[in-house]
């Protein structure tokens, strides 16, 4: 993203001040750091990025990444290079609900492409776009280990499997009415295994 090119010092100070974990979350983070030997706190980076993404709007802004770097006493670049490597970290804003539709072999064999087209039509967006109200983002992803219950999509912590057009309709309606951010770290997951 373009802001990277300017280095960290140019970020809006006021914006950065709002990026701070609550005491409760900070206690969780400290517990995670204790899992690793002394001096190996960088190991906490991926788990803490997941928490940060959930806490600060569903994506990792440069300010958020700098904050995580400061907590783990590592350089900001060490956070940027990780955040941009792994697909679950969003370095651009996304909607409150990101539909990640699996498109690899078994899901494709069971009609994942038709599911994607159906969602595109229904939400009036294309893959990698967000609805105007900021509610839904549509993405396609690679195998999520749901091949026996294909086609499927992930939204936050939940796997929605054996998808049909009717299930997609119901899901969109439910999420729209609940109107909240869905994160991988959510505790209210549902699964069908």
């Amino acid at each position: 993203m373009s802001t990277h090119a300017h280095g960290t010092q140019n970020f809006d100070k006021a914006k950065r001040a709002t990026i701070k974990f609550s005491d409760e979350i900070m206690a969780q983070v400290q517990e995670i750091i204790k899992r690793y030997p002394t001096g190996k706190q960088k190991s906490a980076l991926l788990p803490v990025l997941h928490i940060a993404q959930a806490e600060f709007g569903g994506w990792l802004s440069p300010e958020t990444m700098d904050y995580v770097a400061s907590i783990l006493s590592i350089r900001p670049i060490e956070v940027y290079e990780v955040a941009t490597f792994y697909t679950m970290f969003h370095t651009q804003p996304v909607g409150k609900c990101t539909f990640e539709v699996c498109q690899t072999s078994s899901c494709w064999l069971n009609g994942a492409e038709d599911i994607v087209r159906y969602i595109e039509k229904k939400l009036n967006i294309k893959v990698d776009e967000t609805t105007k109200d900021g509610m839904f983002t549509l993405k396609t992803v690679e195998c999520l280990g749901s091949c026996g219950t294909a086609p499927m999509l992930q939204c936050g912590a939940s796997f929605h499997e054996n998808l049909t057009f009717e299930k997609v309709d119901a899901l969109i309606e439910k999420y729209r009415s609940e109107n909240r951010l869905r994160s991988y770290t959510d505790l209210d997951y549902n699964n069908t295994l």
Partner: peptide, 11 residues
Amino acid sequence: DLYVQVGGGAY
């Protein structure tokens, strides 16, 4: 001691 570590999405 046994811990669970979550990845970030990378085959």
